[in-house]
Design a protein around this nucleic acid. Structure first.
Lengths: 359, 359
DNA sequence: TTGTACGCGTTATCAA
DNA sequence: TTGATAACGCGTACAA
């Protein structure tokens, strides 16, 4: 095959007739190189393909890199708990490369708001930020802070195009909604949808600022509009699961015979809806939601939940951190957009996702 | 948080009042250590949690590791072509860790049979073998050769329990068949299956030795038996797509009005079946097969193929190599079984898999 | 049985 | 503007 001669800086120096120091200065564009020496080194560099040894580099450079990760406070929300696990694993992973990873958990408002956590991360002299910006307004001011301080940032989970981040890691939420539309169609395969209603449920306390839910709904509606000749009615509602009337409101839909499907866009409260649905005799209502969470499993297995779309928060967080390390430490090019696959989970493949750990 | 003081061998030596060499000997159980020194070092090791710096280790040790990968000859088979791409990427990845990765492509028989390629890998003084053993008989003699030469081997794609490998990476093929069964049910959601026939197609030249196809069929049948009250008829056939009668045989099924679904267990010839099916007016026949291959895409998008189950040959190969590196170089524990998720691909999520590269 | 010293490829520092 | 050289943490060879 190809001859695997690893070319080192030392070799380049010899070939160019200069010292290692000079080659290093050329490679890293540090300046202070005579045009004569520059030419000689460049001549060699054009002939051979130099691939720096990243292992040696990370050993050699004494300076350590600090990455802060900002994400919603995870207590009682298993979705963000997963992301948190990803961060902890990443800490172990990158430890030896002299990378320190610091998580910051923010809440919707109050003293640990996104903004104040952003300030905290900046005060910690972070070299890079990885952030899941689920609240639009607060996030924008955070981005401004990062820009003022010239700290690069990578988004995960929720994309905000205006933010102009280094990179975004997540899913195409519009497409995710479309997928839910197709899955809904699969579940009602022979029926015409003209007399049918589907309900999109956004469940949570602070949905007003949440970009991601809206995209999912748009995609869901788009699917029926573009891909079907019949025309189901799509209703969408924002409900707070803590409200007393919550159960009643859900039951209102479940008891409506025209309703044939529920699409819960928020990952956290799906199991509550499932548990309400399971007490009614409505096998003909399909339930679609998000994420392989412990509390969703039994409803998936019993058939109350028909489909889960997996968002893989853990791997999203890890990938965001990976990219930041590659940027900061290895000066690698990183993709502006990394869209994760929309994973479909049903009874017969859920175990294969559980056992495979990382996925 | 925790104080991130990285403990080095040097530090342990100082704490124990011995030299670095002694600590090294204790850590690696090389012997030649007085019980006195051993006790002192162990005392320190129990107090602190030493995590060796793998980066420094791989830089320091001059010896390079050679891993051979054995897989079917990939020409004209995009499935194995994918696996091959994974190997090439792995070569780049591990290059700096002084790992040489050598692929060997075998055919069913002849001079580049699995056995002769296994011999070739052994003659190359491989430190470890990663192998996709799709032909049972030949594989068994290969495993014997590896054992005689004390070369560790990892299986991917096809599991052979008797082989007692270091590790297996792949999918649960029985469960994969069950999944196909559930997907088939989804496509025919209101119908009773009592008068319905499903056809399992094993297409290829040398299916006789192929373990994996049989498992998929078993799972497929199992699903209907265990999960449904009605009782579809499941027919299975082995056909060679090069035979003249191939098209006729397929059409015989397609023209049978009782047939409502085709399940193609082999990844390679699915598109041929799809193309035949597309010329008949049988929208009511569901087609399920394997893998996101270029030639399958248009049939998936046009709805001729309803579901693909993705096996991810590329990542399977990479993971096998990763595990072998971890075993050989870093002496890490590796899982005896790593089952990949059974990924369901349909129209609305296929693009998300294509754009995400690795998956 | 023990300790010392060198090398891996890179970065960074300092003297020339 | 240059070149020489000491780290970085580990493995290993060699000397004591």
């Amino acid at each position: 095959m190809t001859n695997k001669v690893t070319v080192r800086i030392k070799d380049i120096a010899k070939m160019a007739g200069v010292s290692q120091g000079t080659v290093d200065r050329v490679l890293h564009k540090r300046g202070n190189v005579s045009s004569d020496a520059l030419a000689k080194v460049n001549a060699v560099l054009e002939k051979i393909h130099y691939r720096p040894n990243l292992i040696a580099r990370s050993l050699g450079k004494g300076k350590s890199v600090r990455i802060s990760v900002l994400l919603p406070y995870s207590n009682s929300d298993p979705y963000w708990e997963e992301a948190k696990m990803g961060i902890l694993q990443a800490q172990e992973n990158w430890d030896h490369y002299r990378v320190a990873i610091e998580p910051f958990f923010y809440e919707h408002d109050g003293e640990s708001s996104l903004e104040s956590m952003a300030m905290a991360a900046i005060n910690l002299k972070s070299d890079g930020i990885v952030i899941a910006p689920i609240y639009l307004a607060q996030a924008m001011t955070a981005f401004n802070l990062f820009q003022e301080n010239k700290i690069p940032y990578i988004l995960f989970n929720t994309n905000i195009v205006k933010a102009k981040p280094l990179s975004f890691i997540g899913q195409d939420l519009f497409q995710s909604g479309r997928l839910a539309g197709q899955l809904m169609s699969l579940m009602n395969c022979t029926e015409s949808f003209d007399a049918v209603e589907f309900v999109v449920l956004h469940i949570g306390e602070e949905f007003k600022d949440s970009v991601h839910l809206i995209e999912k709904e748009r995609g869901f509606r788009d699917y029926f509009k573009k891909n079907r000749k019949d025309n189901p009615k799509v209703i969408s509602v924002n409900i707070d699961s803590n409200k007393k009337s919550f159960k009643k409101e859900i039951e209102k839909f479940i008891e409506n015979p025209r309703v044939k499907g529920l699409f819960v866009t928020t990952s956290n409260s799906l199991s509550i809806v499932a548990s309400i649905l399971s007490t009614h005799d409505r096998d003909d209502i399909s339930l679609i939601g998000y994420d392989i969470l412990e509390k969703n499993l039994k409803f998936l297995k019993s058939g109350v939940i028909n489909f889960l779309i997996n968002q893989n928060p853990k791997r999203q967080a890890q990938q965001g951190i990976s990219h930041m390390v590659n940027h900061l430490l290895f000066h690698k090019k990183i993709p502006a957009n990394e869209l994760f696959p929309l994973e479909i989970i049903i009874q017969e493949n859920v175990d294969s996702y559980l056992s495979s750990g990382i996925h």
